[in-house]
Design a protein around this nucleic acid. Structure first.
Ligand SMILES: NC(=O)c1ccc[n+]([C@@H]2O[C@H](COP(=O)([O-])OP(=O)(O)OC[C@H]3O[C@@H](n4cnc5c(N)ncnc54)[C@H](O)[C@@H]3O)[C@@H](O)[C@H]2O)c1
Ligand SMILES: NC(=O)c1ccc[n+]([C@@H]2O[C@H](COP(=O)([O-])OP(=O)(O)OC[C@H]3O[C@@H](n4cnc5c(N)ncnc54)[C@H](O)[C@@H]3O)[C@@H](O)[C@H]2O)c1
Lengths: 246, 246
DNA sequence: AAGAGTTTGTGAACGAGAGAACAAAATCGA
DNA sequence: TCGATTTTGTTCTCTCGTTCACAAACTCTT
């Protein structure tokens, strides 16, 4: 995703601040696991325990954490609260991130009403929809704002993270406006490939794709049961038209 | 994810039917790109065009497709409809998958009302919630069923794919019931690490984590601006308690 | 029929990530 | 103080995935 800017020359000691993408994606999981352990009253935890709670291999967890620095104690483990703070700081969760949501349909409403974001370092400061009839409707304590408020709100709050939950065809246009207004990270729920300048990060969440991946594995499981029949594939060349739409 | 069952001995020719996980995750994207091209009236497409529409590198696309077989024509490209059918068949989308959703809160309602699943090969056949007051409510044309209907419905329709959209603490229990009832693929929206038998596939969608990953990159961008100050980190050892809850 | 022009399919080089294994560093009990 | 025990941080190896680059295969024009 983000540009891996070439070796930053002037670096002296250990923590090179270049955490592997795969590790970054797991840090939030560790944070959640630590919260669970803290709630359970644990003040310290071994890599084995933490890994268990996070659902990963303990060697992987230790290597991940070693990228942040050396925050454990050999023979003891990790101080739960301290590690929690260090990870939060590394991810950038010691500050609160203001976020806007564009497209308040089924999904946008669910997101707007979701209370879990605030406690994880994000506050939704405005929600937008193009439908004039919906402007003013409240969701999660915020009124829907009209689209012409987008630029001023983004500027005023210094928004850098936005969520797109519009239909697919509208997504690119919305993304363009967001980027022009100053947003540099987008979470996209619309089934569309967004094209944005290099400095902008886009993450895509696509529920249909997730289901399709499950379907693939499901089909393989089913097939490996009846394995018997070796090499044919009857339906193979029959027709192309069958697929219907997408 | 799924067990990479050891080399299946009795395999003669080319297509070994062991598609890399990374490729599987991209096939649905290609499918969508192909649909877009077809709608635009294209009957044939080069790897370059397809890759453009799908937002990937063309070499990667060609290698991905080569795992399914040799469906292109050198000097020409790929027949849009034919490739579409082949990918759909490979993913298992020539059949329709019945799906159930458990936990009809904000998110579950959005999913239930979403029309996009049907056209992509999935039909929601039942939705469940533990709240007795909500049983009977309609969402997306389906009434909410009580939880005690879960096992009979899963059995009757031969459900193998389920979606969990309950709060985190309830997720494991729900997963256990689903698995016991015969489900072998789960799409989980709850912030919880599910433990399931090996034969069961779980995919997790976690919106907070997506935002946190964006926040990390956002922070790095901000930091690399003020790069000047080299090695310190004032707030480093100050306190641990600051983090609040998760 | 032959040559020019396209575009696929794949071999090979490279890079990133996962996991096993172990030395180094800490605690604890005697 | 010393040795036994625990557990981290890191090195090494292996696997998986990405990208480049090009020969092989096809079309089209003359
Ligand atoms: N609802 C789901 O469960 C679900 C599942 C998978 C994918 N998605 C995707 O998420 C997106 C949103 O889904 P949804 O069900 O909420 O759709 P929806 O149709 O209910 O809502 C879309 C909203 O976006 C608004 N909108 C349209 N054009 C806009 C524009 N140019 N600017 C601002 N707002 C605009 C519409 O007024 C509407 O309120 C879609 O792209 C959909 O494919 C949704
Ligand atoms: N809404 C969002 O935008 C959003 C965003 C990120 C994550 N999530 C996660 O998705 C999940 C659902 O979110 P939500 O906003 O819809 O929550 P919600 O509280 O609105 O809905 C949860 C639903 O699950 C039902 N439920 C509770 N226990 C159950 C059980 N044991 N069996 C069956 N049903 C049960 C409840 O009755 C309720 O209707 C949560 O885990 C949440 O953390 C939601």
């Amino acid at each position: 995703m983000t540009q891996m800017r070439p070796p930053t020359g002037s670096r002296a000691a250990a923590a090179d601040r270049g955490i592997p993408e795969a590790t970054v994606a797991r840090l939030p999981v560790y944070l959640r696991a630590l919260a669970a352990l803290a709630d359970a009253g644990m003040r310290t935890a071994s890599s084995e325990q933490l890994a268990g709670a996070a659902g990963v291999n303990s060697a992987k967890l230790r290597k991940d954490l070693s990228h942040l620095g050396s925050y454990g104690t050999r023979g003891v483990g990790y101080d739960v609260e301290y590690l929690r703070y260090q990870i939060a700081r590394e991810i950038g969760l010691t500050q609160d991130w203001p976020v806007v949501i564009v497209g308040i349909g089924n999904l946008g409403q669910a997101l707007s009403s979701y209370g879990g974001f605030r406690s994880r370092g994000f506050s939704i400061v405005a929600i937008f929809d193009a439908d004039p009839d919906r402007v003013g409707e409240e969701h999660g304590g915020l009124p829907i704002s009209p689209m012409d408020q987008l630029e001023p709100v983004v500027a005023e709050h210094g928004i850098s993270i936005a969520v797109i939950a519009t239909p697919g065809p509208a997504a690119q246009e919305v993304a363009d406006r967001l980027v022009a207004a100053g947003v540099s990270s987008i979470l996209n729920f619309a089934p569309a490939v967004l094209s944005v300048p290099e400095r902008v990060d886009v993450r895509k969440v696509d529920l249909s794709i997730e289901l399709q991946i499950l379907a693939y594995h499901e089909q393989r499981k089913a097939l490996s049961g009846e394995e018997a029949v070796p090499g044919h594939d009857a339906t193979d060349d029959v027709a192309a038209k069958v697929v219907g739409q997408l």
